[in-house]
Write a protein that binds this DNA or RNA. Structure first.
Length: 302
RNA sequence: GGUACCAUAGCUCAGUUGGUAGAGCAACGGACUGAAAAUCCGUGUGUCCCUGGUUCAAUUCCAGGUGGUACCA
């Protein structure tokens, strides 16, 4: 029997959690979360993890399973998620991948190239160099170490340049030699469902959700994490703005406004990515019946 | 009811000595393979309140209307 991975995604705040649970229950299966922040156990309110009732309704994977103190990235997620998906397929021929982290979804669907983890010391050194000597000097170094990638990369994007350099320095081989554009084939079919709605409505939902997070005590949650703000996992909408407020860089009201704005922008960025994927099948968040019908039809076609 | 002031982008406001307009914020579009809720790039989106008058030409000047604000009744 053919196994199917249902990718269930869409912008933040659209209602993936709720509809995803309805669909998972209908197919009597489990949910693999594809969310790069809900994976951390130290964050709860600001990442809008499913509530207890929702978590009890369907078995979830990758919700608060890792620590913000541990190194994590899309490649690790690829490996761990594939293992979990594989184990669910032993009892069920359909698995739901629910989340909005574009790169994580992409890693599961298409794979990413095998290369070593970045070395924190090298990254630190490169960051210092960026700070002291500027981006131009990193570009110059990249041009020498990996002229191929230099000609393709966005030369204004420090993260990309630093990453290419850290891999090149670590391995002694150009970063581009690791890039093969994998497109791995998976032992299951992939059906992609995207949720979207009218933009104003989405913004209203996002703004309201941020207010709810504040009411639920996000400020306190962030305050307890303030001492760890240097961690990448906390470079996250909802926390960084509050950290700036704790620093005295802004006031509380403005911080909340910024959380709303940055969440809206994040949603737009997600839509930009998903729009580009012509395998995506779009629905409104209320259309759980239509979505289920669509999935059943796709499954029976195979 | 009277008087004064105001009406320009989604919002707050500039501006045009008459030649159809621009800032901030918001918004929108795009890139993306190991930090991805990250990081980076790009884009003014407009019945200049309405109707008429003067003028080669009106968002700009004039009159009236409508709406708003303030003060006086």
């Amino acid at each position: 029997m053919q196994n199917h991975l249902i990718v269930f995604t869409g912008p933040t705040g659209i209602g993936k959690t709720k509809t995803g649970i309805q669909i998972a229950r209908y197919f009597n299966t489990e949910i693999v979360s594809a969310d790069s922040r809900q994976i951390y156990r130290e964050m709860t309110i600001g990442t809008a993890i499913p509530d207890t009732e929702e978590l009890n309704a369907v078995k979830h994977h990758f919700i608060q399973t890792h620590s913000i103190n541990d190194f994590y990235n899309a490649s690790r997620y690829e490996n761990e998620a594939l293992a979990v998906i594989d184990s669910i397929f032993k009892a069920n021929n359909l698995v739901l991948l629910v989340g909005g982290s574009m790169l994580y979804i992409d890693a599961v669907c298409n794979g990413i190239d095998i290369m070593p983890d970045a070395d924190p010391e090298i990254r630190k050194m490169l960051k210092k160099k960026l700070e002291n000597e500027g981006l131009e000097s990193l570009r110059f170094q990249l041009k020498k170490l990996d002229p191929d990638y230099y000609s393709q990369v966005d030369l204004k994007n420090p993260n990309r340049i630093i990453h290419a350099l850290e891999i090149s320095l670590l391995t002694g081989k150009p970063y581009s030699s690791f890039r093969s554009n994998p497109n791995k084939t998976r032992p299951f079919s992939i059906i992609k469902i995207g949720l979207n709605c009218n933009r104003n409505k989405l913004h209203d939902r996002i703004n309201a959700r941020v207010d709810q997070m504040i009411d639920a005590g996000l400020e306190n949650e962030a305050r307890n994490l303030y001492h760890l703000k240097h961690l990448n996992a906390l470079n996250t909408v909802g926390y960084r703005e509050l950290f700036a407020f704790f620093n005295g860089e802004t006031n509380r009201e403005k911080a909340i406004e910024l959380i709303k704005r940055n969440t809206r922008r994040y949603a737009r960025k997600q839509l930009t990515w998903f729009r580009n994927d012509n395998e995506m099948n779009w629905f409104e968040p209320e259309q759980s019946v239509e979505i289920i019908n669509y999935i059943e039809k796709r499954i029976s076609d195979k």
